[in-house]
Design a protein around this nucleic acid. Structure first.
Lengths: 124, 124
DNA sequence: GTATAATATCTTGCGTAACAAGATAGATGG
DNA sequence: CCATCTATCTTGTTACGCAAGATATTATAC
């Protein structure tokens, strides 16, 4: 049905917009316990949020490259005896600071939204 | 100082990204108690969030136009005896439904983020 | 009376981020 | 040898927020 299709498309695009500005935080956060490689990050995120948050590899790699360029993460290639080579990412000190800062920015914004939305708008 | 300037610029740009996907919700919410005109919406938002959330008119009008095109808001011009003509916006029924839906989408996303960030990442 | 500021709306152009789609390549299994 | 899985990377599209500027009317100041 058209209504379903449109609804789904629109819902996807809302989720897409909401993620803007949050993905770097998400990824830095997922890297905070230790190093991980790209595919691992994708599955970690889906697992730890029960699918509430997702990202595709086509989204992830550009973000990782951005983080690498900004020296928020450092990189190490590992070629296992069997299997495809993996690129492991880990937080730098600068990345850890950025994580704290982004967490603060996000929380501040979310709290402002929350308190605005919680106001009863029917009684002025 | 360069560090301060960069920090401020970066903070602004983070706030900018975070707003994506939230502005429609914010505006629909501000219109829910009754009609308002553009400039009024801007000052309302700043006042009600103590400046934590802001938007400029150059941002607002395109969003209002989008909402109008989607029939989420209806429009009425008013030319007061003294003063510049004002364009008043009010929610339609469809707009009220959209408001509920966006509120749900936003809350779902924010809760997922919150619960992810609240996890202690140092203990795997 | 003429600047200047304030109120109010609208438009253009830019930068950037998320993502779909597809390319690449080695490993595994039938 | 063909398909499928793991894993990474690239290209192009789309849409949004916003800075900057245009326009018009009214109010204030000099």
């Amino acid at each position: 049905m058209a209504a379903d299709a449109d609804g789904a498309k629109e819902r996807r695009s809302i989720a897409r917009e909401l993620k803007r500005g949050s993905l770097e935080l998400i990824i830095l956060h997922l890297l905070s316990p230790g190093e991980a490689y790209g595919y691992e990050i994708v599955s970690k995120l889906i697992a730890e949020t029960d699918g509430a948050l997702e990202l595709s590899d086509g989204t992830l790699y550009p973000v990782l490259y951005r983080l690498e360029r900004g020296e928020f993460v450092a990189v190490r290639w590992e070629t296992p005896e069997r299997g495809v080579p993996r690129k492991y990412y880990r937080l730098t000190e600068k990345g850890r600071e950025q994580l704290e800062r982004l967490k603060y920015e996000w929380t501040t914004f979310a709290n402002a939204m929350r308190s605005l939305l919680d106001q009863d708008r029917s009684a002025k």
